[in-house]
Amino acid sequence: MTNVILDGSDMGRAITRIAHEIVERNKGASHLLLLGIPTRGHPLAVRIAAAIERIEGVAPQVGSLDITLYRDDLRLRPARALESTSIPASGVDDQVVVLVDDVLFSGRSIRAALDAISDLGRPRAVQLAVMVDRGHRQLPIRPDFVGKNLPTSLEEQVRVALVETDGVDEVTLTGSGEDGAA
């Protein structure tokens, strides 16, 4: 049983709202570096950056940050292919880094991303933007900017699809089939 939670226009509004919140929180777009976590965090970061440019007239820097080599569950699965990491030449030092990911779940990916960033340099601050926060955190991590808070059960699956990677913009929730009452 799959339900569409957000459609394309819902997601577009969420991205615009997140862009506004980032600008408001950081008082503009200077010193901003949006780092998307592959695969889907990176196109989301690109879209948020474009939205910020529409608001501020200045585009923040965008990069991607693969966290595979920093994961704490590497040995639970066969070695994974690496995704691209691209950091703008100016680096992360003294920047406000906004990590961008599609779904925030246990928080372990973000823990890995924080470790990766600290190996790259010393940002002024690190903030977190996610399209969906589905709860069930296992680490003391919370998002700064959220597209949609979505209470879920552990059996359910949340999937963020993007035109860039999946051909369509939508957020879906696939249930286990019998816990609709939850």
Partner: peptide, 15 residues
């Protein structure tokens, strides 16, 4: 080294 040792053991599954 990463592909052979970084995961649970099987390189080609990762591919």
């Amino acid at each position: 080294l990463y592909l052979l040792l970084g995961g649970s053991g099987d390189l080609t599954d990762g591919a």
